[in-house]
């Protein structure tokens, strides 16, 4: 491990400018009423005090891709249009863990070249999360707020300066030319204090152990009809099947594939786009059949997946970012579902 450094807060602008030479830099910015990862023109736009973004960094890797272009009887993968590497600046532990899970998911039996191409073209400067949102529960899942792997650089806000830890040779190159002050042991202690303070801010928690088995075992548990049909679990309304939970989930990966012909009809593209198991059409089969027609079965599928009990196993399970809770118009809360399944 390379020695940690320190970046004074007033030097953040220079730091971002320096990174922008090599990378397209994306970081959290404030919008009307939420935060979002956007291209950063100036460090002034950066909001390192953000709690969470509406859409996770998944949007950079797995929202919509062209799988191939066809023309008559010929077809091929599109030539890469990527030029400059991109950098995600200020990624929290929950999102970083989700990215690492997708790295595993997309390299299991088959390697997904589209995901991997984007992933290999990216770098990550992570940020220890110190502004815990009301829906966050990463601490209880062991996915935050501390970060141990998966970053090129790791920043911690120490008050007047950022502690910079190096996680890769690429990260080392990012700061090489900068004349940064070395961090000392009291800086590292300060970091630990920051993490400890963050830990006291959590409102929600979820006990993950064995939830995957419970969800698969209790297929007719009352909680599924509460969230799927009747409403009433901790004040929630019945699920709308709008798909928000899975679209904002950093570990949801399911996608739809479609051919889009041009008007000439013999040329076109095959694309894929993020899909959701909450949508009725997701489980349609030939001749109009549907094996998850009931809303209840659909919410059970999603929750089971987030508890690690679906096909993705723990590579698509919950990281505790709380986005699904924030994004659900019906106020369905995964931590309440877990409690109910446990009989708590």
């Amino acid at each position: 491990m390379k020695p940690a450094k320190k970046l004074m807060k007033e030097e953040l602008g220079q730091f971002v400018d320096h990174l922008s030479k090599e990378y397209l830099v994306y970081g959290p910015v404030a919008r009307r009423s939420d935060f979002s990862f956007q291209e950063i023109d100036s460090a002034e736009d950066l909001r390192f005090d953000y709690t969470t973004t509406t859409i996770p960094p998944k949007k950079f890797f797995h929202h919509r891709q062209t799988l191939l272009r066809y023309s008559g009887e010929d077809y091929s993968e599109l030539e890469s249009t990527l030029e400059k590497r991109f950098l995600l600046l200020g990624v929290h532990s929950c999102d970083l863990n989700a990215i690492l899970r997708h790295d595993r998911l997309f390299t299991r039996q088959f390697h997904d070249p589209y995901y991997l191409k984007l992933r290999r073209n990216s770098a990550i400067v992570a940020l220890i999360c110190t502004h815990i949102g009301n829906s966050c529960f990463c601490a209880s899942l062991g996915t935050g707020p501390t970060i141990r792997e998966g970053f090129d650089l790791l920043l911690t806000d120490l008050g007047n300066e950022y502690l910079i830890e190096v996680g890769s040779s690429e990260g080392q190159r990012m700061i090489e030319e900068l004349n940064l002050q070395k961090a000392n042991s009291s800086d590292l202690e300060k970091k630990e204090e920051r993490v400890k303070l963050a830990l006291t801010q959590f409102v929600k928690s979820m006990k993950m152990d064995g939830l995957n088995q419970l969800a698969l075992k209790y297929l007719d548990h009352e909680v599924w009809s509460l969230i799927g049909e009747k409403g009433g679990l901790a004040g929630c309304f019945a699920c709308l099947s709008c798909g928000n939970c899975s679209l904002v989930c950093p570990t949801c990966y399911c996608f739809e594939v479609a051919d889009i012909p041009e008007l000439s009809l013999n040329q076109g593209v095959r694309i894929r786009e993020l899909d959701s198991c909450q949508l009725l059409e997701y489980a349609e089969v030939a001749l109009g059949g549907n094996f998850r027609r009931d809303r209840k079965a659909r919410v059970r599928q999603w929750m089971t997946c987030k508890f690690g009990g679906a096909g993705g196993g723990f590579d698509s399970s919950c990281v505790g970012c709380g986005r699904c809770i924030n994004a659900c118009p019906s106020h369905i809360d995964i931590t309440e579902v877990a409690k109910s399944l446990r009989g708590e």
Binding site: R108, F255, E256, V285
Partner: peptide
Amino acid sequence: ERRMRCGLGLCGHCQLGSKY
């Protein structure tokens, strides 16, 4: 039998519980 988009264990559509 399930309608599949990828056949590779990646699109998710054919999941039955923990299995693709």
